[in-house]
């Protein structure tokens, strides 16, 4: 089975941990995170601020702040290991076989260069192609991302474009080398609602067309529901639940996921003006080692057993649906040993 699944598996991360020394001790913002993405699949990582979702993506790209240390059992991109392979090898992969789209398109484009320059540079850095060829690809991709009069846009500077257009340019740049994997960190948070829908539409079309794997990191459950094939819900540094979008939204298992879904007003479902659900309490500090379930202190169903020992991600009754909660676990082996249990 592993051989078989690796042919379509774009990214496999097992037991990723990130540690950052802070004055009060050792901060562990990412703990025991395992993810995988297949070709043509969109995985949404969803969680509130500080849950470790962005650091997870930076750890995969090896772009963590210098003080941070990462460790993992396995990290493979299309079967090749990409963990601790050295900065030079990694920078050859970054922007080529996996690329990233950030939240704020204004700060991720260099204001001193034209977008044509930046797009051409993105390709020429990794491929031995002529400037004219790179330019042709840039025009092709700008048209693909819905920018009209693409050729004339190449000479423009980032500040001459609106936020939505800049994000489209960022997407085109991420696609220049035809990556296996795209990581999009809150790609639409800085944009208006109408533009957000357009950009998401574009992303899912392109991803289907080029058969890439995509990790989309967001806090917006609406975005997740509409675009995700599979969803990983993160809380306090850990993945608490993973499953298909239908499983997560129609039959959430983890109390945190259920709490989150109760918190948002859903037009058509929530009664207008009715009280919304709430999750009392605050997120625990991730400094030092914490035993038990991270959500136990805020969980309405917590019992004594929740506060001791490490709670593993274990399969639920549904195939491919795993959950880090004592309430939902059927006796069995941890997910990490049952390869592909979540596929």
């Amino acid at each position: 089975m592993p051989e078989n699944s690796h042919s379509k598996r774009v990214l496999e991360v097992k037991r990723l941990n990130v540690e950052i020394p802070v004055p009060t001790g050792l901060l562990r913002p990412v703990q025991d995170v395992s993810l995988h993405v297949d070709r043509g699949e969109t995985l949404c990582v969803v969680g509130e601020s500080g849950c470790g979702k962005s650091l997870t993506s930076l750890a995969i790209m090896d772009l963590l702040p210098t003080k941070a240390k990462r460790a993992c059992d396995e990290m493979r991109l299309s079967g090749d290991t990409v963990f601790d392979i050295g900065e030079r090898a990694m920078s050859d992969i970054r922007g080529d076989r996996m690329s990233m789209i950030f939240q704020e398109p204004m700060t991720s484009l260099n204001p001193a260069y034209t977008i044509g320059n930046q797009l051409v540079e993105a390709l020429q850095r990794h491929r031995n192609v002529s400037k004219a060829q790179a330019r042709d690809r840039a025009i092709y991709l700008l048209e693909k991302v819905g920018i009209t009069a693409a050729a004339s846009r190449l000479g423009q500077y980032p500040h001459q474009l609106s936020g939505g257009l800049r994000q489209r340019v960022m997407i085109a740049m991420a696609l220049m080398c035809g990556p296996d994997l795209i990581i999009a960190d809150e790609p639409t948070t800085a944009l208006d609602v109408t533009i957000q829908a357009q950009i998401l539409h574009l992303l899912s079309d392109l991803q289907r067309e080029f058969q890439m794997g995509m990790i989309l990191i967001t806090h917006d459950l609406g975005v997740v529901a509409r675009i995700a094939d599979r969803v990983a819900v993160m809380y306090a540094g850990q993945v608490v639940e993973t499953g298909t979008a239908e499983q997560i939204f129609n039959a959430p298992q983890h109390p945190y996921t259920r709490g989150l879904l109760d918190c948002i007003p859903i037009p058509g479902k929530t009664k207008r003006g009715a009280r919304l659900g709430a999750i009392p309490g605050i997120v625990p500090s991730l400094v030092g080692h914490m035993s038990g379930c991270h959500f136990a202190s805020r969980c309405p169903q917590a019992h004594e057993g929740c506060e001791t020992g490490d709670i593993e991600l274990l399969p639920t009754a549904q195939p491919g649906h795993v959950c880090r909660c004592l309430l939902t676990q059927t006796p069995g082996t941890p997910v990490h040993e049952t390869e592909g249990a979540a596929s």
């Binding site: 819905g146 939505g164 257009l165 489209r168 609602v193 109408t194 533009i195 957000q196 829908a197 357009q198 998401l200 539409h201 899912s204 917006d220 459950l221 609406g222 975005v223 997740v224 529901a225 509409r226 675009i227 995700a228 298909t244 979008a245 239908e246 997560i248 939204f249 129609n250 879904l261 948002i264 859903i266 037009p267 058509g268 479902k269």
Partner: peptide, 18 residues
């Protein structure tokens, strides 16, 4: 453009000029 958390619906196409 409102994205209700309903996985059975896809990303809406608003047909708005960009």
């Amino acid at each position: 453009s409102v994205l209700t958390p309903d996985p059975s619906l896809g990303v809406p196409d608003t047909h708005l000029g960009a």
